[in-house]
Design a protein around this nucleic acid. Sequence first.
DNA 1: CGCACGATTGACGGAGCTCAAGCCGCGTGG
DNA 2: CCACGCGGCTTGAGCTCCGTCAATCGTGCG
Lengths: 268, 268
Amino acid sequence: MSLETLASSPAISVAAAFPKRQIHHLREVSDNTAALRCTSCLLRDFCLPSGLSAQDTELLSTLIAARRTVRRGHALYHGGDPFENIYTVRAGSFKTQLFNPEGREQITGFQISGELLGLDGITGGQHDCDAVALEDSQVCVIPFKHLEQLSFDMPTIQHMVHRLLGAEISRERKLLMVLGNMCAEERVASFILDFSARLTARGYSSSEFNLRVTREEIGNYLGMKMETVSRIFSRFQDAGYIAMRQRLIRIVDLDGLRAVLEPARLSA
Amino acid sequence: MSLETLASSPAISVAAAFPKRQIHHLREVSDNTAALRCTSCLLRDFCLPSGLSAQDTELLSTLIAARRTVRRGHALYHGGDPFENIYTVRAGSFKTQLFNPEGREQITGFQISGELLGLDGITGGQHDCDAVALEDSQVCVIPFKHLEQLSFDMPTIQHMVHRLLGAEISRERKLLMVLGNMCAEERVASFILDFSARLTARGYSSSEFNLRVTREEIGNYLGMKMETVSRIFSRFQDAGYIAMRQRLIRIVDLDGLRAVLEPARLSA
DNA sequence: CGCACGATTGACGGAGCTCAAGCCGCGTGG
DNA sequence: CCACGCGGCTTGAGCTCCGTCAATCGTGCG
């Protein structure tokens, strides 16, 4: 199936013609310039331009060097790759994973449409994690050099960059809170609620969605084992909080899920 | 009496007035404007100026609005406070702690001399965690607005800001890895090693140092209970990896500690 | 169709939590 | 000067949650 159900412009059908194998490291095929404009993108309100004036959005558009398609399971970039671009997810979804010196893996996040990729690596000049597509996906490519240059003249752009970096810090902090303080049930509940909230913020249904990740990946992300994740999903289903078939999940009792996170559920 | 006596008293002969060893419990220093210069600060190579040219360092110095003393147990800022400044730790140490909606606490980091505080809050315009002094401490105050303004003209300064934000992201990622993947022994080992490495990087002894935090705080930071932390310290001591008296810790067998983090310690 | 991978479920064991008692080091006041 | 109390640390005993191992099932793909 085409990735492009979301894409607006007819010119986009170019993307469908992408060669099947090794999109991986392909030199960019540019779509026609008009199609790269944020103003005509359906995601404009949920993506970088959100909050920017029409004028600034236009300017931001000029930065988008290309779009790039990444096949399921392939990496948009690897840890160690030189840092050149940041990316916004235009269609599909990704995971970012980190490997420590001893070879352990930690998934640090899942990114959906309108969210940002590649900010790691601003520091060291190279990415420090892998970004892997969870399904056939497409990103907008923004050369960071250009963005920096633009931000010299444009305070609003500079603010945006700071905001983005700060947002990344906050996001990881929330995850720290989850990993440091919560038991397995609470972790899974907060994972579902977080996912749902982000989908809502991007105009998707908040009550029914496709997780697109294996139980193993969820487990890795949440610091627990696949089997435990599975058991808790089953438990939530039995409790009537959710309904699920494979990776499709429907939230049935939102308050029930939220209650899992309530503090002391103990008697007075 | 105000804590600010330090920041505004008559000139003393600057850095020379710093007794080498007790930087930790300093109270005696007073600074006039001249003294606010990074170039004359003993920490210059371990702090923000690290990596900057003499010229840029000079420029950076002009940003330092004041120094501020914070008493042990007091907060430099609270979550919710408007974001105005970032801070570098000039003497002493801090912890940053986060509270989630349900009232749970998570310590997200410990900061020592030369390290940075306050970057949270760039996004939302207000700090999202508390920064609390672990001992009587002193910070340099850098108004973020000024820093942003300066960075319009100075690419190197802008780079520095990005580098700092990126470093914060990396730091939190390392912690994610610890919380998501490691068992209690490994967490404590990596905590000790991390502390030691940071002290080394700042010119302190790497083998003997004062943790300055309670077992409870270490536990909170590492996602485990005080009792477990204590047990593991004892175990490490019995194993001859460390020697400790209260919060003073000495690394006896560095390789032993490192080996705790080795991957599969299983037979071939 | 059959294979392979992912998901589910069960049985069991152990790492870490809970509860509790006792200890140490330090400050305070008699 | 010591007695006392308090906060933080240590250590033990028991329990629980979650990890481990393993068998089975379901589903999508070649």
